[in-house]
Deep mutational scan, measured.
Amino acid sequence: MPVRRGHVAPQNTFLDTIIRKFEGQSRKFIIANARVENCAVIYCNDGFCELCGYSRAEVMQRPCTCDFLHGPRTQRRAAAQIAQALLGAEERKVEIAFYRKDGSCFLCLVDVVPVKNEDGAVIMFILNFEVVMEKDMVGSPAHDTNHRGPPTSWLAPGRAKTFRLKLPALLALTARESSVRSGGAGGAGAPGAVVVDVDLTPAAPSSESLALDEVTAMDNHVAGLGPAEERRALVGPGSPPRSAPGQLPSPRAHSLNPDASGSSCSLARTRSRESCASVRRASSADDIEAMRAGVLPPPPRHASTGAMHPLRSGLLNSTSDSDLVRYRTISKIPQITLNFVDLKGDPFLASPTSDREIIAPKIKERTHNVTEKVTQVLSLGADVLPEYKLQAPRIHRWTILHYSPFKAVWDWLILLLVIYTAVFTPYSAAFLLKETEEGPPATECGYACQPLAVVDLIVDIMFIVDILINFRTTYVNANEEVVSHPGRIAVHYFKGWFLIDMVAAIPFDLLI
C-alpha cells in the first residue's frame, strides 16, 4: 500500500533555474538572501570558489559584500557603492579590487542584480563577478574607477581610450546646418538635424578633445543650467548677453562664444560640459537660429522629431539603469545623424518603425519583477520565466494532490484497515475457520451469522477504491517536481505499489 509523501509542494524551481543557467555559462556568482541580516550568502558556485580561493563552506553565510576579499588596494568608495546597491532595488555595476585567499590582487567587475517577489519586494541578490585585470595590471588604489561605466561593446579594446569628441564640431553647429540641408533625401539625416562627426583615429590627448566618459557625465550638469543662461549661451556672438549692473557675465554663455574659444586653444572642462549641455537642449539648428531671432517656433511634425517616441515608452518600462547606459552608448555611435529632440514631445505622434532597438522591449506582467540581467542570462521568455513566489501546480481535472487534506485522511483510514487485516486475518484463519468446520452448517442466516465476513468484505472494497484513487494521485519525481499527468501517474504506480495493492485487495476469504 503506498505511503508516498512529498510535502515540499507547491515547489518553486526558480532558484534552481537560475543556478542551472548560470552554471551553463561558466559564470562566477553568488546568491544572497536579502531578508536576513547583512544579506548572507546562501549559494556560491564553483567558479566563484576558484576565483577567490575560498571553499564553499568558508563563503556560505558570510555577508555578500565580500568584505573578506578586501585588501589594501580595495577602494572604500567601491565598497560603499556595493553596500548601497544592496540597500536599493536597481541593478548596478561596480569595479573593485579584490584579494584572493593567497593574497593576489585582481580588479573585478561586480554586477549586483536584485530579484523581487510578486509584491515588488527584493528577496534575493545575485552578484556576478568578472575579472577585468590581474594584480600586475591593477593601478594605484588612489585612482577611482567606479565613477565610470563599463566599456562599450562596439569599441575595440585597444581603442576604448582613444575615443574623442571634438569640441569644434559642437561649436560649428550653425555652420554645418547648410551642408545638412543640402544633403536632402540623399543624406542619412532628416531636415533640421545636426550631424556630429566623431574622430576615432588614435591621437595624443589634446586640450581640444573630450573623453567619452566626460560626455556621459554632461547629463548630470544640465539641471544646474538655468533657462535664461541656456538661451544666452545659444544666442551666440551676435547678441551678447546682458548683465545687470554690478553683475558679471555668465561664464556659461561665454563658453560657447566662437570668438572667445578661437582665441585660446584650450577650454576648461567645466565650460566644455556646460556648452555641450546647452546645445543638447535645442532640438535642431533651426531652433538655434530661432533663439537668435527671439522667436522659438513649435517643433515640426516630421520623422526626426518622432524618433524618440518609442524611446520614451522603453525608458518607462525599463527595469534597470543598464538600459540608460545602453541608450547613452548607442546615442554616441560615430558617423550617424543625431536628432536633438526633447523627450517631452507630442504624445499624438505616431511611433516610426526603427531597425535598431535601443531599449529592451516591454516586459510582460509575469516578468515585471525580474531584472534585465536575470532575463538576459536565463534566456527565457515571458511565458517560461515565473515570478519568485509559491505557485500552485497546474493539475488535470479529477486529480488528487498527494499533500491535500483528503489524501491525508484517506491514508490514515487505509492504515487502520491494514492494521485490522494484519490482526484479524490470522485470527480468523486459526480459530474461526476451525469452529466453522466443526459446527453445523448455517446457510440460512447468511452474513448475519458471520459479522467478521462483512467487515472483511468492506475492507476489500476499500482497498479496491484505494487502488483507483492512487491512479489519480500526484507524486514527486526525482527532481522534486509534482507530477499531475494521468499517464505518468499510471506508469509510476504500475512500477511501484500496484502489484502489492492488488494482492492485498483480493478477497481470499470469499474465494475459499
Score class of each variant (00 low, 15 high):
4 R>A: 13
4 R>G: 13
5 R>I: 08
5 R>M: 08
8 V>M: 15
17 T>M: 07
17 T>Y: 12
19 I>G: 01
21 K>V: 13
21 K>E: 13
21 K>Y: 11
23 E>D: 09
23 E>F: 01
24 G>E: 07
24 G>V: 06
25 Q>H: 11
27 R>D: 07
27 R>I: 05
29 F>C: 01
32 A>C: 06
34 A>W: 01
38 N>V: 01
38 N>Y: 06
39 C>G: 08
40 A>F: 05
41 V>I: 13
43 Y>N: 01
44 C>A: 14
45 N>H: 01
45 N>G: 03
51 L>I: 07
53 G>C: 01
55 S>P: 06
58 E>C: 01
58 E>A: 03
59 V>F: 01
59 V>W: 01
59 V>H: 01
61 Q>I: 01
61 Q>H: 09
63 P>G: 08
67 D>C: 05
68 F>I: 01
68 F>M: 01
69 L>F: 01
69 L>W: 01
69 L>N: 01
73 R>K: 12
78 A>C: 12
78 A>K: 05
80 A>V: 13
80 A>I: 14
83 A>E: 09
84 Q>V: 05
84 Q>T: 05
85 A>G: 05
87 L>V: 14
88 G>N: 13
89 A>T: 13
91 E>V: 08
93 K>W: 12
96 I>F: 01
96 I>T: 04
97 A>W: 14
98 F>G: 01
100 R>V: 01
101 K>R: 13
103 G>W: 01
104 S>I: 06
105 C>Y: 13
106 F>E: 01
107 L>Y: 15
107 L>F: 14
108 C>R: 01
108 C>N: 01
110 V>E: 01
110 V>Y: 01
110 V>R: 01
112 V>Y: 01
112 V>T: 09
113 V>E: 10
114 P>V: 01
114 P>D: 01
116 K>T: 10
116 K>Y: 10
117 N>P: 07
118 E>A: 11
118 E>S: 08
119 D>P: 06
119 D>K: 13
119 D>Y: 06
120 G>Q: 14
121 A>Y: 10
122 V>W: 01
124 M>Y: 10
124 M>I: 06
125 F>D: 01
125 F>E: 01
126 I>G: 07
126 I>Y: 14
127 L>A: 01
132 V>Q: 15
132 V>A: 15
134 E>A: 08
134 E>W: 05
134 E>M: 06
134 E>I: 04
134 E>S: 11
135 K>N: 10
137 M>K: 04
139 G>E: 13
139 G>A: 15
140 S>R: 07
141 P>C: 08
142 A>K: 09
143 H>M: 13
143 H>V: 11
144 D>E: 11
145 T>C: 05
149 G>T: 08
154 W>C: 04
155 L>Q: 05
161 K>L: 03
162 T>S: 08
164 R>C: 06
165 L>I: 06
167 L>K: 05
168 P>F: 03
169 A>H: 15
171 L>Q: 15
171 L>G: 14
172 A>C: 05
175 A>T: 08
177 E>A: 08
179 S>H: 10
180 V>C: 11
181 R>C: 15
181 R>L: 08
184 G>C: 06
184 G>E: 06
185 A>W: 03
186 G>F: 06
186 G>V: 09
187 G>C: 05
187 G>D: 15
187 G>F: 06
188 A>K: 05
189 G>V: 05
190 A>W: 13
194 V>Y: 07
194 V>I: 05
194 V>G: 04
195 V>K: 10
195 V>Y: 05
200 L>G: 15
201 T>E: 09
202 P>N: 12
203 A>I: 06
204 A>V: 03
204 A>Q: 06
204 A>E: 03
204 A>L: 15
205 P>D: 12
209 S>C: 01
209 S>F: 04
211 A>E: 08
211 A>S: 13
212 L>C: 06
218 M>L: 06
220 N>D: 07
220 N>V: 06
222 V>H: 05
224 G>I: 06
230 E>S: 12
237 P>G: 13
238 G>N: 14
240 P>F: 15
240 P>C: 07
242 R>S: 04
244 A>F: 01
244 A>V: 12
245 P>Y: 14
246 G>P: 12
252 R>T: 15
253 A>M: 15
254 H>A: 12
256 L>N: 07
257 N>C: 15
258 P>W: 05
261 S>H: 11
262 G>K: 08
263 S>G: 11
266 S>V: 12
267 L>S: 08
268 A>F: 07
271 R>E: 15
273 R>L: 11
274 E>D: 15
275 S>E: 12
275 S>Q: 09
279 V>C: 12
281 R>E: 14
283 S>D: 08
284 S>H: 08
285 A>K: 07
285 A>W: 11
287 D>P: 14
287 D>Q: 12
287 D>S: 09
289 E>I: 06
290 A>E: 15
291 M>G: 06
293 A>C: 12
295 V>H: 08
296 L>F: 11
296 L>Y: 05
296 L>R: 15
297 P>W: 07
299 P>K: 07
301 R>Q: 07
304 S>P: 15
304 S>V: 14
305 T>I: 07
306 G>E: 12
308 M>G: 11
311 L>S: 08
312 R>V: 11
317 N>F: 09
322 S>G: 12
322 S>K: 11
323 D>Q: 08
323 D>C: 05
325 V>I: 14
325 V>A: 14
326 R>F: 03
326 R>H: 07
326 R>N: 09
326 R>S: 12
328 R>D: 13
331 S>A: 07
332 K>T: 08
332 K>D: 14
332 K>C: 04
334 P>A: 03
335 Q>P: 14
337 T>P: 05
339 N>E: 07
340 F>I: 12
340 F>Q: 15
342 D>I: 02
344 K>P: 10
344 K>Q: 14
345 G>K: 14
346 D>V: 11
346 D>T: 05
347 P>H: 15
347 P>K: 10
348 F>Y: 11
350 A>G: 10
351 S>N: 15
351 S>Q: 15
354 S>K: 04
354 S>M: 10
355 D>I: 12
355 D>F: 07
357 E>L: 05
360 A>F: 03
362 K>Y: 11
364 K>I: 07
364 K>W: 05
366 R>C: 04
366 R>Y: 08
370 V>Q: 05
371 T>D: 04
373 K>E: 06
374 V>A: 06
375 T>R: 04
377 V>A: 05
378 L>Y: 03
382 A>Q: 15
382 A>F: 05
382 A>W: 15
385 L>C: 04
385 L>K: 09
